[in-house]
Computed example of a mutant assay.
Amino acid sequence: MTKIDPSLYLQNQQKTRTPSPELGKNEFLKILMTQLSNQDPTNPMDDREFISQMAQFSSLEQTTNMANSIEQLVQSQLVSPVIEYSHMIGKEVSYQAFDKDTGEKLDVETSKVVAVSQKEGWAILELKNGEKIYADAVLQVSEPTIKED
């Protein structure tokens, strides 16, 4: 014989209702269904009023979906450093060069950005001279001095 989960007993259910300050689409549908089920059969709801309420529900649902889509778009834009630094493609950047063997500072070098990638959430600028530098290592950004076709 199967046992009943004690959490489902009425005595274990929440006795007080916590009101919500927001009216979402689920609450709107509940109100509409309650109205329809409790209306007087001899005096049903006016067609225009019903259509108006359905239009309000449709508008609420579309607005909610649009807000969710915009939120997803914003989140995806914030996450990608590639998108954030893509405007630098074609620009010249100056950066402090270092000797790869000793770590000693060399002269400030300048090169054109040809691509942007990411590594562990950091933007990497790929330069025409073959170097790859972190975007935060850039000292100066400028338009290219020599136009190339």
Rank of each mutant, 00 (worst) to 15 (best):
Met1Arg: 12
Met1Ile: 05
Thr2Arg: 11
Asp5Ser: 09
Pro6Ser: 00
Ser7Pro: 07
Leu8Ala: 11
Leu10Lys: 12
Leu10Asn: 13
Gln11Val: 15
Gln11Gly: 01
Asn12Met: 00
Asn12Ala: 08
Asn12Arg: 06
Gln14Lys: 09
Gln14Pro: 00
Lys15Ile: 06
Thr16Gly: 04
Arg17Gly: 02
Thr18Trp: 02
Thr18Leu: 12
Pro19Asp: 02
Pro19Met: 03
Ser20Phe: 01
Glu22Asp: 13
Glu27Ser: 08
Leu29Tyr: 10
Leu29Cys: 06
Lys30Asn: 13
Lys30Phe: 14
Met33Asn: 15
Thr34Leu: 14
Thr34Cys: 00
Thr34Trp: 09
Gln35Tyr: 13
Leu36Ser: 10
Asn38Arg: 09
Asn38Ser: 14
Gln39Ala: 05
Asp40Ala: 04
Thr42Trp: 08
Thr42Phe: 14
Thr42Tyr: 11
Met45Lys: 10
Met45Ala: 08
Asp47Tyr: 06
Glu49Gln: 15
Phe50Lys: 09
Ile51Gly: 07
Ile51Thr: 13
Ser52Thr: 15
Gln53Phe: 07
Gln53Thr: 03
Met54His: 02
Gln56Leu: 11
Gln56Met: 09
Phe57Lys: 11
Ser58Asn: 15
Leu60Gln: 12
Glu61Pro: 06
Gln62Gly: 03
Gln62Asn: 13
Asn65Phe: 09
Met66Lys: 08
Ala67Lys: 10
Ala67Asp: 08
Asn68Phe: 09
Asn68Tyr: 12
Ser69Leu: 13
Ser69Asp: 13
Glu71Asp: 14
Val74Gly: 00
Val74Pro: 01
Ser76Thr: 11
Ser76Glu: 09
Ser80Glu: 04
Val82Ile: 15
Ser86Ile: 07
Ser86Gln: 12
Ser86Trp: 04
His87Ser: 13
Ile89Phe: 01
Ile89Ala: 03
Ile89Ser: 02
Ile89Tyr: 02
Gly90Asn: 05
Lys91Asp: 01
Lys91Leu: 04
Glu92Thr: 06
Glu92Pro: 01
Glu92Cys: 06
Glu92Lys: 07
Ser94Trp: 03
Ser94Gln: 10
Tyr95Pro: 07
Tyr95Met: 03
Gln96Thr: 04
Gln96Asn: 08
Ala97Tyr: 00
Lys100Trp: 09
Lys100Arg: 14
Thr102Gly: 05
Thr102Asp: 01
Gly103Phe: 06
Gly103Asn: 03
Lys105Leu: 03
Asp107Met: 08
Val108Lys: 11
Glu109Ile: 06
Glu109Leu: 14
Thr110Gln: 05
Thr110Met: 05
Lys112Gly: 01
Lys112Ser: 11
Val114His: 08
Ala115Leu: 01
Gln118Arg: 05
Glu120His: 09
Gly121Asn: 12
Gly121Asp: 12
Trp122Val: 14
Ile124Val: 14
Leu125Lys: 04
Glu126His: 13
Lys128His: 04
Lys128Ala: 14
Lys128Pro: 06
Asn129Pro: 08
Lys132Glu: 11
Ile133Gly: 02
Asp136Trp: 06
Ala137Tyr: 00
Val138Gln: 03
Leu139Arg: 11
Leu139Gly: 01
Leu139Glu: 04
Gln140Met: 11
Gln140Asp: 08
Gln140Lys: 15
Lys147His: 07
Glu148Gln: 10
Glu148Ser: 11
Glu148Tyr: 03
Asp149Val: 13
